[in-house]
């Protein structure tokens, strides 16, 4: 799980162009959206693409993202139990 969390952090920094953010800056349990990283609705859509592209997970309803992207840990747990690649 920790490995997946680290991998996800690097992917998110890369995909969302968080140039001045390091993996250490992202708390495993802190909310991904809201004040912390300054992510917005387009970032959420980009995370949906990331889940599909890297882990073969297709969200039927984009609103599901709200639950899944609550924190890096919750996202990693969701990926672990639903990944197809």
């Amino acid at each position: 799980m920790n490995e997946l969390i680290q991998e996800l952090k690097l992917e998110i920094i890369n995909v969302l162009n968080l140039e001045d953010v390091t993996p250490a800056d992202i708390n495993d349990d802190a909310p991904l959206f809201g004040d912390g990283l300054g992510l917005d609705s387009i970032d959420a859509l980009e995370l949906i693409v990331l889940m599909e592209k890297n882990y073969g997970i297709k969200l039927a309803d984009p609103a599901q993202g709200r639950e899944i992207f609550k924190s890096i840990r919750i996202m990693a747990e969701y990926i672990q139990s639903n990944r197809t690649k």
Partner: peptide, 9 residues
């Protein structure tokens, strides 16, 4: 084929 929403905007 993974269209990027952030690029599309």
């Amino acid at each position: 084929n993974y269209p990027s929403p952030s690029l599309f905007v």
